[in-house]
Design a protein around this nucleic acid. Structure first.
Length: 559
RNA sequence: UGCCCGAUGGUGUAAUGGUAGCACGACAGUCUCUGGAACUGUUUGUCUAGGUUCGAGUCCUAGUCGGGCAACCA
């Protein structure tokens, strides 16, 4: 069983929050924030962070802010802002009025920089990127003091003001914190606070030509919003001393940063850069390609917000770098859809089944159960006639006792219909099977034999008369190996792309399927869970995406 | 080889000095009008070596292995 959503969670961060509440560290306040940079689409790794940030706030009667960390206009865009807002909402979280942008704090951040200069804690540095690299040194050797480090406060103030006024070229000057060029932590070796960058910002336009760096801005953003617990991923661990140092230097309210490990999933990649590469190289149809681990991709695949939330609860929060098996995610969507999705009949790889003793022109309406796990889902009528479609794989000319399906001489049940006994096949000159023939037992109408006789197998079918056809996309994992990133020196992660991650087919379907509205989830019996694509479906012509196949222990046995 | 972080079955996690548990997966079986679901069972684990302790996955020391850090990215 997956952890119910109301079950209390516990992990080292929640323990810490509870502790801080206990000791009154933040006067009983709990304020968290989810701070994405609007430079890409959110993926399932972000979902883990979102569930943590919003979850902790929710559990403690606190608030969680949605804040865009938009300090680098060169990479950011409103397209991403919009998608992030949509995705967080879709996942099921609400930030109320607490929607913020780092860019709204630019003036305040600038003031902090000026204050630091006044206090002798920051200076303007004229070293180029390469030159500073020299001064910074390497981890095993201390760096050297940059030339501008002993500039007077007045001169620094003047220079910094002129940086803002646009008197200097991009890259010619940078504001640095005066910390320690010999620190074993490279981030403490006079990190950059402000850089000159003539780029139009998606919100502030051309108001600014200098922008604060992440290290300088992030802590101040947290401080301004009076965040209590600033949660981020492990790679920021080495930034924490700087986070603390800067806030102390600015003499402002200090939140506390805590790091946890990011989510990695087998058979996919999670880096924004690589996802962008897949989109731009058209290896996928877009950010919302159903094979993508993006939230919009998963949404389009048919995943529900609840299944993703439960998955996130399931993986938990630790500092251990891990690689989570994708089957854990698949388990949660199967578990939910088993309870909620209506069953329907669809034949993916059709071959004709002719019932020789069934009246030529007769069409019956048989009753089928919509969801055996949910009686309230009711029943529906399915047309039945002399000629049906069945799965090609459900028939074998030669079969052993373990094959519970159609083979000459064997009797099986047609789901919700009749028992039929296979009598033979019709092939074309090439030996391809054209038709399978059988006879039916009229006494077994509905699927039960009055004489109590049992059959081992039940197969699904679609009436040739009265049924229809739809497009179906069979999705499989995007990559064929567990760790697509693991490539030899000369290789590329794209070499690991699964060539069969998408297969298009035309399925024979019962009438109910033709009427499905876009965005409907259902189970094609004995096959898998499917979702009528919201984008590509049209009235009377739904297009289906396979969300996840049903477990198939027969296929396993056959291997 | 400087600094920081981590290490529990195949995978993800729990155990906060006191019986190593849960979920997923795998395997076997029961049941079944989905070879689905459900149910039952099985398998597999504390990185190593010392130490503290009546008792160590947990605390200490050393080592091993893995990850991160040298953008004017976040």
């Amino acid at each position: 069983m997956s952890k119910a959503e109301d079950e209390l969670l516990s992990d080292f961060i929640r323990d810490k929050v509870a502790d801080d509440l206990q000791t009154g560290k933040y006067d009983g306040r709990v304020v968290t924030r989810f701070p994405p940079e609007p430079n890409g689409y959110l993926h399932i790794g972000h979902a883990k962070a979102i569930c943590l940030d919003f979850g902790i706030a929710e559990e403690n009667n606190g608030v969680c802010h949605l804040r865009f960390d938009d300090t680098n206009p060169e990479k950011e865009d409103v397209e991403y802002v919009d998608s992030i807002i949509e995705d967080v909402h879709w996942l099921g979280f609400d930030w109320g009025e607490h929607l913020y942008y780092a860019s709204d704090y630019f003036e305040k951040i600038y003031d902090c920089a000026v204050k630091m200069i006044r206090n002798g804690k920051a200076y303007v540095c004229e070293l180029s990127v390469d030159a500073f690299k020299e001064y910074r040194g390497v981890p095993t050797r201390p760096g050297k003091l940059p030339p501008g480090r002993d500039r007077s406060i007045e001169e620094n103030l003047d220079l910094f003001g002129r940086m803002r006024n646009g008197e200097f070229e991009d890259g010619s000057y940078v504001l640095r914190a005066t910390i320690d060029m010999a620190s074993p932590n490279l981030h403490m070796r006079d990190p950059a606070l402000y850089r000159i960058k003539r780029a139009t910002h998606h919100r502030t336009g051309d108001t600014w030509c200098i922008y604060p760096t992440y290290d300088f801005a992030h802590g101040l953003e947290d401080s301004i919003e009076r965040v209590t617990h600033s949660l981020c991923t492990l790679e920021f661990e080495v930034h924490r001393p700087l986070y603390d140092w800067l806030l102390e230097a600015c003499e402002v309210y200090r939140p506390e940063q805590t790091e946890f490990s990011r989510l990695n999933l087998t058979y996919t990649v999670m880096s924004k850069r690589k996802l962008l590469e897949l989109v731009e190289g058209q290896y996928v149809s877009g950010w919302d390609d159903p094979r993508m681990p993006t939230l919009c991709g998963l949404r389009r695949r048919g995943y529900t917000p609840e299944s993703i939330r439960r998955f996130c609860r399931g993986v938990g929060i630790t500092k251990v770098e891990s690689l989570t098996d994708i089957s854990l995610l698949e388990h949660h969507i199967k578990d939910e859809l088993n309870r909620t999705a209506n069953r329907v009949l669809a034949v993916m790889d059709p071959v004709k089944l002719v019932i020789d003793n069934y009246p030529e022109d007769q069409v019956e309406e048989l009753e089928a159960v919509n969801n055996p796990e949910d009686e309230s889902a009711g029943t529906r009528k399915v047309p039945f006639s002399r000629e049906l479609w069945i799965e090609r794989e459900d028939f074998r000319e030669e079969a052993n006792r373990k094959f519970y399906r159609l083979t000459p001489g064997r009797e099986v049940r047609l789901r919700y219909a009749y028992f039929v006994t296979c009598t033979g096949v019709v092939k074309d000159e090439a030996g391809e099977i054209q038709e399978v023939h059988c006879t039916y037992d009229p006494a077994t109408r509905g699927g039960d034999a009055p004489d109590g006789r049992r059959v081992k197998g039940t197969i699904h079918w679609v009436s040739a008369a009265g049924g229809g056809e739809v497009d179906v996309r069979m999705y499989d994992r995007l990559f064929s190996v567990e760790r697509p990133d693991d490539v030899p020196e000369s290789g590329d992660f794209k070499d690991n792309l699964n060539p069969d991650s998408l297969k298009l087919l035309r399925a024979k379907v019962e009438p109910a399927i033709l009427d499905m509205a876009p965005g409907t989830r259902c189970q094609f019996e004995r096959k898998g869970y499917f979702f009528s694509d919201p984008k590509d479906s049209s009235e009377g012509a739904p297009v289906f995406n396979q969300i996840v196949p049903l477990r198939d222990s027969w296929a396993k046995r056959a291997k």
